[in-house]
Design a protein around this nucleic acid. Structure first.
Length: 589
RNA sequence: GGGGUGCUAGCUCAGCUGGUUAGAGCGCCGGCCUGUCAAGCCGGAGGUCGCGGGUUCGAGCCCCGUGCAUCCCGCCA
């Protein structure tokens, strides 16, 4: 909370109340608005704490009175005056300081200001480039101030909760080494080592593991991370993680610890959280919601109807089942009367998400079944489908057949689309853990196994035996914190046995030599007495975005970049002088 | 890399099937005004219609190209 200490003022605007009546005060801030009646003028003075009405009255304001007509919005002023209750009939109950005003006895202009490019007001929808170009003006607007304030409350609460639990905040390097996996790195050329580059960290992952080997045991950091990938509403090239790592833990330990921390953080943001949080395995999340970060604020769950069509004469379904695939369905309640065009749009969504196509059966409220595929179903199959999905008149059954994961993902995308189309309310906060992710994911393009999370994720102990024979079946000690369908955090237990670490790297296609070249320092560290450890990283920006109710992560970052990674305020990124390039041993293309 | 949407006054927007002087609200400037609080009333200034090319007697509007923004897909361990 802003207060008047250590400043030229006696009070801040937002603290003045009727109880200050009669006091001589000095306030300072920006001219918010001016209402000049000629013989009497009102000036709203704004500082970070709020707004107070100042009255220029010829009988009371003396030499300061003529100033009222000179000053302009956003000028910076100091006002001396006397607090008094507003005259009867002029109280404004809509404003926090609506029952008092400051009668001006002196005014000093500290700085004039040009007319701002847009108004300092809540609820205006100015083009984002303009807002970012003049971000220092934008920050004066109440929404931006509120977002930054809430973000601060969240960050402070994280610190407090973690400090209370014995965590040590340790800073890790921003100039580090490029590692092969993951996102594209931002590179920084080294002047002193021609041709060599630092990389900005994608996360402090390796360092926090080294800290565990170093015996820190409980580490956290509110850390800036950098990834040079294309941006989205919830992705910036630099973003902030609440990065956490602990030694001598099991999965339950960190999940419980995080639930307690999150309880406090949500509270600081004025929200409730019920713990323990639900835990859903990755497999279950995929089966029920078609997503590894399900939005559980609404139903529309997927059903497996493979059994129902086990002996189906419908060739498409039979082929899929024959190849070990699945037939999944969801019931879009209330879409049974939709036009053909509207249903075709659903098909497009499913296809865009990987499905070969969407098989649908509409059950209009007036009875007659509409469907391009139902004619291939037996009566039993149609009845079974209705039973499985609790179909009522007015419903639309959407089906996708294919390899299981792709089918789930396609229906998962359709599920989210339908939630919007059907106007399903999504309010409040639904938070859960998604746990037990597969250790590896098969990458069709490269024909290799990729780490689902990162290459240091610890496989289930009971799966160590099948690590190399059957990588696709290996699960990992992993957990994502999901809120309202957004992944706001994720973590894993780490491999602390160098032999296991090498095995995993081998599955990922890194032979001994390459592994030691790329992660040698970590493998070496693991040989020097590494405790079992694990951790989590939370996306502070995303969490703040959710809790602020913002649509974009940019709204909770003081100086964000546009979607092409540029900063309209500073002009970054920008060219540099030939001399700078030469010094860095670089040539621009 | 691909797709959608947008770009007209400082800001937010309107501008019909192409038609002669491109509009509104807010803001800004000036004047009047002693109880407003989005003050009010009167007057005024302010435009490379994102940029380049083309079609046309004529382009803010149609065509081609391009830039920027934004949302999404790919990408983001």
């Amino acid at each position: 909370m802003l207060d008047a200490r250590y400043s030229i003022r006696s009070h801040v605007a937002g603290e003045l109340r009727a109880s200050h009546s009669g006091e001589e005060v000095t306030v300072a801030g920006w001219v918010h608005r001016r209402r000049d009646h000629g013989g009497l003028a009102f000036v709203d003075l704004r500082d970070r704490s709020g707004i107070v009405q100042c009255v220029f009255d010829p009988d009371e304001s003396g030499d300061a009175f003529p100033m009222a007509s000179r000053i302009r919005p956003e000028w910076v002023v100091v006002v001396r005056g006397r607090v008094r209750p507003r005259p009867e009939g002029t109280v404004n109950p809509a404003l926090p300081m609506g029952d008092i005003e400051v009668v001006v006895t002196g005014l000093e202009v500290l700085n004039e200001a040009v007319t701002p490019p847009f108004e300092i007001e809540a609820g205006i929808e100015t083009d984002e480039v303009t807002r970012l170009r003049y971000r220092y003006i934008d920050i004066r607007r109440p929404e931006v101030l509120a977002a930054l304030t809430l973000r601060d409350a969240i960050a402070q609460r994280f610190r407090r909760e973690l400090e209370d639990r014995g965590f040590l905040e340790v800073e890790t390097p921003m100039l580090t080494v490029s590692t092969p996996e993951g996102a594209r790195d931002f590179l920084v050329p080294s002047r002193m080592n021609p041709g060599d580059f630092y990389a900005l960290p994608q996360s402090p992952q390796l360092f926090k593991q080294l800290l565990m080997v170093g015996g820190i045991e409980r580490y956290y950091q509110i850390a800036r991370c950098f990834r040079d990938e294309d941006l989205r509403a919830d992705r910036q090239p630099e973003f902030t993680q609440v990065d956490i790592e602990m030694s001598f833990i099991r999965t339950d330990d960190i999940l419980q610890m995080m639930e307690e921390v999150m309880l406090g953080v949500m509270h600081a943001a004025g929200q409730e959280l019920t713990v323990p949080l639900p835990r859903v395995t990755w497999a279950e999340a995929m089966e029920r919601y078609g997503s590894d970060r399900p939005d559980t604020r609404f139903g529309l769950e997927l059903a497996d109807v493979s059994e129902n069509f086990a002996t189906s004469g419908f060739k498409v379904f039979a082929d899929v089942l024959g190849r070990g695939g699945a037939i999944k369905a969801l019931n879009a309640k209330g879409a049974g009367d939709w036009s053909r065009g509207r249903i075709d749009a659903l098909n497009d969504v499913a296809v865009a998400a990987g499905a070969k196509g969407l098989a649908w059966v509409a059950f209009p409220s007036d009875g007659e079944v509409r469907s391009p595929v139902a004619k291939f179903f037996s009566a039993d199959e149609t009845e079974g489908l209705k039973a499985a999905l609790a179909v009522e008149p007015g419903d639309l059954v959407c089906m996708v057949a294919g390899p299981r994961t792709m089918t789930n993902e396609a229906l998962g995308a359709l599920r989210l689309h339908l939630a919007d189309e059907l106007g399903i309310e999504r309010t409040g906060f639904e938070t859960l853990w998604v746990v037990d992710f597969p250790l590896f994911t098969w990458d069709e393009d490269s024909g290799t196994w990729q780490a689902s999370h990162h290459p240091f994720t610890r496989p289930f102990d009971e799966h160590l035996g099948i690590l190399e024979e059957s990588p696709g079946d290996v699960l990992s000690y992993s957990y994502d914190l999901v809120m309202n369908g957004l992944e706001i955090g994720g973590g894993t237990l780490r491999i602390h046995d160098p032999k296991v670490q090498k095995q995993v790297l081998r599955v990922l296609g890194h032979d001994e030599e390459r592994a030691s070249e790329e992660f040698g320092f970590l493998l070496e560290a693991l040989e020097h007495g590494a405790p079992p450890h694990g951790g989590i990283a939370l996306g502070l920006d995303r969490l703040a975005m959710l809790l602020v109710g913002a649509r974009s992560i940019r709204d909770v970052i003081a100086f964000p970049k546009t979607s092409s990674g540029s900063c309209p305020l500073t002009g970054a990124p920008a060219g540099v002088s030939p001399g700078q390039l030469k010094e860095l041993h670089l040539r621009a293309e």
